[in-house]
Every structure is written in C-alpha cells, then in structure tokens.
C-alpha cells in the first residue's frame, strides 16, 4: 500500500516545515499545496497556521481556499486544523475586531481570560495536559486513540475557542483556573489548539492516528 497523501494547506503562513517533517516521520506523503485538485484528491487534509486570525482568513481568501476547504470537509475524509487552523474552523473571532471564520464548528474565538494583577501570563506557551471532557467516555476511534488522558502537548496561543456545542469538545486544558477547549471533533473533522508536530512522541502518535483514519 502506498503512503497516504496528506495535503497541507499552503497559504503562506507560518512554519509548515515541522508539519511536513512530522507527517513524513509517521509514514505519510505530505504535499504542501493550494491547488484545488491536489487538495480534493488527497487522503487527508491539514490546515496549519500561526499568527492573527484576521490575517489567516485574509490569506485563505487570497489563495481562493475557502470553497475548497468546505468541499473537502463535506467528503468526511480526515481533516485536521492546528492552532490558528483550528480557530479558523469556527464562526468568528474578536481578535483585532470581529472576523468571520470558516464556520465548520459553531462558536467564537476569544482571548483567554487571565488575571494580570496576579501576574498570570499570556501568551499561554509551553507544555500542558489535554483532558477527556465529561461528555465523552474515551478517545477510541478518534485521533487521540493512541494517547492517554492528561498527556502533555505543546501550546502557544493567546486566544481559544468557545464552542457552542459541548458535544463537539474532544479535549479541554486548564490554564490557571480557566478550562478551555483544546480539541474539537465532528465526524472526521478535527481541530487541535496545540501543535502535535511539536509535541514529541505523543504528538506524532496523533498524526499517525490521523493518517490511519485516511
């Protein structure tokens, strides 16, 4: 069997080299592309991204990627949004004024509430554990099937998702006393706020599970 072809959305934003290396490491054939044909014919899709929400959406529009992403999402092939990629899957964000997102998940992106008086820090940078939320029993048959609850992942962000539907929350993470949604899922569409490509072996296991679903 040939290696699954994983399209990584190329919209000229951030470090995609780590994602390419990590996917190659777990046996996939990563293709950095913004071609409609290549994206739709891929076995799975990864939407990476760092930086500001509005800039990210602007870049997706500039490369005419909004429609093709929606088309891919409707195929039910595995689709993973990472960091800003996850955030853009939601309805909107209020980072630098309100910006509309892809609307694949219902909800908003908001700044993480921290108490600066208590010297609480932002951005949230570093390793933090992902927890199984109350609404689900286990991570079987998801991209987290190979990892344990409370595994540490690498995060770097100041904004986080507030999903409208609790049933779509796949993992939560605690920052100070604030629990936020660190992963989301509906069918084969996933979003993770952390960076699996930078989260050592557990992160690679997540990417491996993604391609196993393909």
């Amino acid at each position: 069997m040939s290696a699954p072809r994983i399209a990584i959305v190329d919209y000229d934003l951030g470090n995609v080299k780590s994602m390419i290396n990590a996917l190659s490491k777990v046996g996939a054939q990563p293709i950095l592309t913004n071609s409609r044909k290549e994206i739709l014919s891929a076995d799975a899709l990864v939407l990476p991204g760092v930086g500001a929400f509005s800039h990210g959406m602007q870049q997706l529009k500039k490369y005419n990627l909004i429609d093709v992403i929606h088309s891919f999402a409707s195929t039910n092939k595995p689709f993973l949004g990472v960091c800003l990629g996850m955030q853009m899957m939601f309805d909107r964000s209020n980072e630098f004024g309100e910006t509309e997102g892809l609307g694949l998940f219902s909800g908003d992106i908001k700044i993480i509430g921290v108490d600066l008086i208590k010297q609480q820090r932002l951005p949230h940078v570093g390793w933090n554990n992902i927890c199984l939320p109350g609404n689900i029993k286990n991570w079987e048959n998801t991209i987290f099937s190979e990892i344990q609850g409370n595994t540490d992942m690498y995060f770097v962000h100041s904004y986080a998702a507030s999903p409208l539907l609790n049933t779509e929350i796949l993992a939560t993470t605690l920052y100070y006393d604030h629990a936020f949604c660190s992963a989301i899922m509906r069918g084969n569409i996933y979003g993770v706020q952390f960076h699996p490509e930078k989260s050592a072996e557990p992160g690679l296991l997540i990417l491996k599970s993604l391609i196993d679903l393909a």
Binding site: S18, S24, V156, H195, K198, S199, G203
Partner: peptide, 8 residues
C-alpha cells in the same frame, strides 16, 4: 534537526 527533533 527538525527532521528528528519534534519539540520547539
């Protein structure tokens, strides 16, 4: 390094 080291 980025081919074998998967941390920041």
């Amino acid at each position: 390094a980025t081919k074998s080291v998967f941390v920041p």
